[in-house]
Amino acid sequence: MIEIHELTVRFGARDVLRNVTLTIPCGQRAALLGANGAGKTTLLRALLAHLPFSGSAAIGGHDVREDGVRARALVGYVPQTPAFPPLLTAAEVVAYFQEIRAVVPDPLPLLAEVGLDAEAGKPVGALSGGMARRLALAVAQIGDPPVLLLDEPGSHLDAGGEILLRSWLDEAVPRGRTVLVATHHLNGLQGLVDRMVLLEDGRVRADAGVDAIRAARWLEVSTPGPMPALPDGVSVLPAGNGVLHLRVRDGSLPALLEVLGARPVDIHEPALVDVLREVRG
């Protein structure tokens, strides 16, 4: 379980995170969403006690500052930009972190799992961005930690890497892992998280379960004017140029299409983040 209470991080005169309170229970996979600079990476780094903060944070009941070694023993972390001891090979990096976590060094099976067995002898400096990301995923699995903190884990990954990440997140549920994924887009991760938390300007703006978000979801319909008599469950969104933008709640679409008759229509789903903003939780 991850517990964050009134956590504030200040860089100079600027509050990067403001009074963030969040509890992620055991076995839940939560996505931490937000634009660049919203404070996602800072929150993950605060959970690892990499920077000073006020308030409190605990992982598995261990305060991340007072009892940091025990807290970090529960965490597998994939940083935003993975970097490794520069003079080691991929296999040595895995062996190094295995030894640190008191796991018998045996890097090859883990490297094979992330598709890097052929790169085992390569210096880490020679790995591509995607390979470095895969290596970071391998390192984060060492010791089978019950909590995963993933910072933009999908960036730089090729299709194979994304499949690997998806299967990894899929497996998190039966293994009872708690996952916090920071990302500015949900591409590839939809359906793999149970909850979404939206950070804006260092504050939690919205926080809801995926089921609640799905239930609140609507469709958006664009069609040329004029305005018809709208059925129940349909509202008007701001628009221009003689085009109508309508928000249609679940189940109201057939009635609306009947009203619109033969008019051309464009139906699309809003971004999940927009729905999340309205649900708030």
Binding site: L48, H50, V69, R70, P79, A83, P86, F97, I100, R101
Partner: peptide, 16 residues
């Protein structure tokens, strides 16, 4: 190591 970012990964391990 700080500049390259590799220190971050080490400081994320269960080590004082």
């Amino acid at each position: 190591e700080r500049e390259s970012g590799s220190l971050v990964l080490l400081l994320s391990q269960p080590v004082e």
